[in-house]
């Protein structure tokens, strides 16, 4: 008599769905995943919705709407292991750019009847609302990391962690440093690994889409960009205020380069 398969749920809050798509792009491993777990709730992939509780919940997206405040509590109650995956779920996402201004200004600019757009003033990570068992950073996280995290849950292995810099993956891959040899403002030295140094491998600077690494010394890198690469303050604000704008390290760095508000 085979063991009952663990139930997997995939949830979406405010996001572009790219993380969920990266699950669907697993190809052969998706078949393996379906063999190993009961895909019980994954609206992006299937109309079939089995009731909870769920053994593993993968949560995509940030908390940004009033109804999310309730929903995120419900997801937590229904989940034995809750994995927040992706930039939005672990930091607030690009939509957290609103956190630096009055979201009402945007709504009034874009929509004819802004009162019909009930959004929270800030876009925030799942962990700000409920306890999270594991966070997988990245826009989207590397699919290998997602598989490794699920495998870890199923078999009691340690979860994957890559808290050190992108530079380690970049050098292992044999890429020549685009910052040093081409003078490009690469965020790799302060960004968490996991992507496999995708952009530097194509002669593009890292945009920090995997978020701050452990002990990120953003001030030193920003100083180098300004003094040696000629970056303007406004460019430094934009460099750090992108995918992980709301992560504390990047948030503080971008704010440090903002013009002080004009008096009056």
């Amino acid at each position: 008599m085979p063991r009952k398969k663990p139930k997997l749920a995939v949830w979406k809050f405010t996001s572009c769905d790219g993380c969920q798509l990266s699950l669907l792009y697993l190809d052969d491993e998706l078949v393996e995943l379906a063999e190993c777990v009961e895909i019980a709730y994954f609206p992006e992939a299937s109309r079939r919705r089995l009731p909870g509780p769920y053994d593993i919940s993968l949560v995509e997206g940030s908390v940004s709407l009033p109804e999310h405040l309730e929903e995120v509590q419900r997801v937590r109650r229904l989940s034995r292991v809750l994995i927040a995956f992706g930039t939005c779920a672990t930091s607030g996402g690009i939509q957290a750019l609103r956190n630096f201004t009055d979201v009402g200004d945007y709504a009034r600019l874009v929509y004819e009847r802004p009162e019909l757009i009930p959004v929270l003033a800030e876009s925030t990570p799942i962990s700000q609302h409920v306890p999270v068992d594991l966070e997988l950073q990245g826009c989207p996280p590397h699919r290998g990391q997602v598989v490794a995290a699920v495998a870890a849950c199923l078999h009691g292995a340690p979860p994957p962690r890559t808290p050190a810099s992108v530079c380690l993956e970049c050098k292992r891959a044999g890429h020549i440093c685009v910052l040093v040899s081409r003078g490009l403002p690469c965020l790799g030295p302060v960004t968490q690994a996991g992507c496999g140094a995708l952009c530097p491998g194509c002669h593009r600077p890292c945009y920090g889409c995997f978020g701050p690494k452990e002990t990120p010394k953003t001030s030193s890198l920003a100083r180098w960009f300004r003094e040696r690469l000629g970056a303007k303050e406004a460019e430094l604000v934009r460099a750090f205020r992108l995918f992980y704008a709301n992560a504390p390290a990047f948030r503080l760095e971008s704010e440090a380069h903002e013009e002080p508000p004009r008096p009056g």
């Binding site: 050190a164 810099s165 530079c167 380690l168 050098k171 292992r172 440093c177 790799g188 030295p189 302060v190 690494k213 452990e214 002990t215 990120p216 010394k217 030193s220 890198l221």
Partner: peptide, 10 residues
């Protein structure tokens, strides 16, 4: 100044 990025050792 040190970024602890590890490039020197790599």
């Amino acid at each position: 100044r040190c970024l602890t990025c590890g490039n020197c050792a790599m």
